[in-house]
Amino acid sequence: MRILSAVRTGLVVLAAVIGLSSSALADSGSISLRIVKAGFFVGGSAGSGVLRFHGRNYPVSIGGLSYGFTIGASETRFRGRVTNIRRPSDIEGVYAQAGAGVAAGRGAQAVVLTNQAGAVLTLSGEQAGLIVSADLSGLALTLRR
């Protein structure tokens, strides 16, 4: 009976270690992005940036569309962290967001976005321009090769 209990306890501990080790393999990096957004009811976004991961820089391209109410143009420069990635390509994908806002001149921005692979972007920065929006938007990030 004691042997069975010890085996059961050992299996539970082993399962916990395996579960922790797979999430412990996830890593993080830093990222800087420049995004230009413009629109007249339907909007578009484009930009570029750099992912810094394990001491190397990886250029990033950004494109996106927004649907809803968007009038004007703005430029946002973000800096932040990328978490829950194992390799640079994990940042690739679509990051969706719903939002509303008005920007005239300069203002602070902060956002947290997640893609389909589970990568999390935690960004803050400054927005400049004149834009009014209430929309659903998606940003597609890809590594430039």
Rank of each mutant, 00 (worst) to 15 (best):
G80I: 06
S28D: 08
I35V: 14
V111E: 10
G68L: 09
A24C: 14
A15L: 11
S74L: 06
G43E: 09
V13K: 10
P88D: 02
I91N: 07
G49W: 06
L33N: 03
A73K: 11
G72Q: 14
V111R: 05
A103L: 12
G101M: 07
G68R: 05
G99S: 10
G93W: 06
G43H: 08
T83M: 09
L51G: 10
G19V: 01
N84F: 03
V12G: 06
I35G: 00
R77K: 13
I18G: 08
D27L: 04
G19W: 00
A110G: 15
G55A: 04
Y95E: 13
V42T: 15
R8H: 04
S21P: 03
S28I: 04
P59Q: 02
G105R: 00
V12S: 15
Q97T: 09
R56S: 07
G19S: 12
I62S: 05
I31H: 01
R52Y: 09
V82C: 03
Y95H: 07
V111T: 13
I71S: 08
G63T: 11
V94W: 07
G93Q: 09
T76E: 09
G105P: 00
L25F: 07
S23W: 08
G39P: 06
F40H: 14
Y67C: 15
G68S: 08
S30R: 05
A98Y: 07
I91D: 09
G29E: 06
S21W: 02
R34A: 07
G101Y: 01
I18T: 06
Q97S: 12
A108L: 03
F78M: 08
R52G: 11
G43N: 11
F40Y: 15
L113K: 13
V111H: 00
A100G: 08
D90G: 09
F41I: 14
P88F: 00
A46V: 08
V102A: 04
A73P: 15
A96M: 13
L11Q: 14
G63D: 15
V94Q: 13
I62F: 04
V60K: 13
V112K: 08
R81Y: 01
V17L: 14
R56W: 00
G101L: 05
G43R: 05
R56V: 08
G10I: 01
L51S: 03
